[in-house]
Design a protein around this nucleic acid. Structure first.
Length: 378
DNA sequence: GCAAATGATTTCGC
DNA sequence: GCGAAATCATTTGC
């Protein structure tokens, strides 16, 4: 078919005639109705999807971190989390690190919002453009309002997918920032000498039962400028490490034993008044005079005992038992070279804790010095 | 730079 | 929920 100027003119004339036909609006609306009733209506109902749960999670997280939502002073929630994670904010450089964290978070927030704004702008521009196109097309073909809505929703969905990527990468950035700044492991600081001393004093003066009560922990925490959970951690680590290598801690134990003995003989209270464990009620608030019976004696043990393995009978774990046996006859006393620095008084003096204190486990004169004979259940 | 020390976390059993 | 044990990650001392 050849298209000539004449045929084009004819076509234009016919189109114009059709557009101007009095029946045109009515026919057009009928066409639109049919179109709407067929495929479009079905599709539009199918496209109504529930809110993406992942998107909700991302939104919630960004809100919680102070990245999304209203400005919270650079993420005060996160700063609070930082303070909690760092153990009560004892460290003097905490505030510096927190401000560093806040500024980094503010950067992320800024980038996130500017990118979000760009996306929204681009989305609006594109939507307007498509709407204009559709309006233009609606002159020549039936374009139902629903079709337009559908188009808009498709565009929005595409852009929200991009937004989700942005939110995802923002969340990742926040996570990295958190792990770098707030991870307590990374933030580990050794306790002060004084704090370690206070803890050690308590530990060695309660060697037969180094399990401070909640009140004792609180008081120790206050004294050391650390949190209660840090005190718990410290005692947990100490117990384990002490049991694993008693020989290594012998010297330390002796030092604290001497300290304790000196403070006792000098008339009373230890240099650092200490929390009173429940078992030592009425002891005058001192480790040394506690009724727990953990006091070290700066002299050879009673009955000629060296420091007995019974001192470390906190548990009946296989490892500990095997350790005890591996020490062989003479036990820990060997490390003292005969000069026993301290000897546990009667472990049962504190009312007996755990099943560990069995008659055979307590050093018996009949078993010889330093006997580590104990419950050989395993 | 390396090993030891040390505080924190994780896993598991009770 | 607590404690033991193992492990991780960092600090410290050489």
């Amino acid at each position: 078919m050849t298209i000539t100027d004449q045929s084009l003119d004819e076509a234009q004339a016919k189109k114009h005639a059709l557009n101007c036909h009095r029946m045109k609006p009515a026919l057009f609306s009928v066409l639109c109705e049919i179109k709407e009733k067929t495929g479009l209506s079905i599709r539009s109902s199918q496209e109504e999807e529930p809110v993406d749960p992942q998107l909700m999670r991302l939104d919630n997280m960004l809100l919680a971190e102070g990245v999304a939502g209203p400005e919270k002073g650079g993420g005060s929630a996160a700063a609070a989390a930082a303070a909690a994670a760092s153990g009560g904010g004892v460290s003097p450089d905490n505030s510096i690190e927190h401000s560093d964290y806040r500024s980094k978070l503010a950067q992320i927030r800024h980038i996130y919002h500017s990118e979000l704004e760009k996306y929204e702008q681009a989305c609006n521009e594109f939507t307007t453009h498509v709407m204009n196109l559709l309006r233009e097309q609606s002159r020549t073909r039936p374009v139902a309002p629903k079709e337009m809505e559908r188009m808009v929703s498709i565009i929005h969905r595409k852009f929200s997918a991009i937004q989700m990527q942005l939110k995802q990468s923002t969340c990742e950035a926040v996570m990295i920032l958190r792990s770098r700044f707030l991870d307590a492991r990374r933030k580990r600081r050794n306790f002060s000498k004084q704090a370690t001393e206070v803890l050690n004093e308590y530990f060695y003066s309660h060697l037969s039962n180094p399990y401070p009560s909640e009140e004792a922990k609180e008081e120790l925490a206050k004294k050391c400028g650390i949190t209660v959970s840090q005190v718990s951690n410290w005692f947990g680590n100490k117990r384990i490490r002490y049991k694993k290598n008693i020989g290594k801690f012998q010297e330390e134990a002796n030092i604290y034993a001497v300290k304790t003995a000196v403070s006792v003989t000098q008339g009373g209270h230890s240099r650092t008044s200490s929390p009173t464990p429940p078992s030592s009620a009425g002891s005058g608030g001192s480790f040394n005079l506690s009724g727990s019976g953990d006091m070290f004696l700066g002299m050879p043990g009673l009955n000629g005992d060296s420091y007995s393995a019974s001192q470390v009978r906190w548990s009946t774990s296989p490892q500990v038992e095997s350790l005890r046996h591996s020490m062989g006859p003479g036990g820990y006393g060997d490390n003292l070279g005969g000069g026993q620095m301290y000897s546990p008084r009667e472990m049962r003096a504190n009312g007996g804790w755990q099943e560990a204190v069995t008659p055979s486990s307590v050093t018996s004169p009949t078993e010889g010095p330093g006997s580590v004979h104990s419950d050989t259940s395993n």
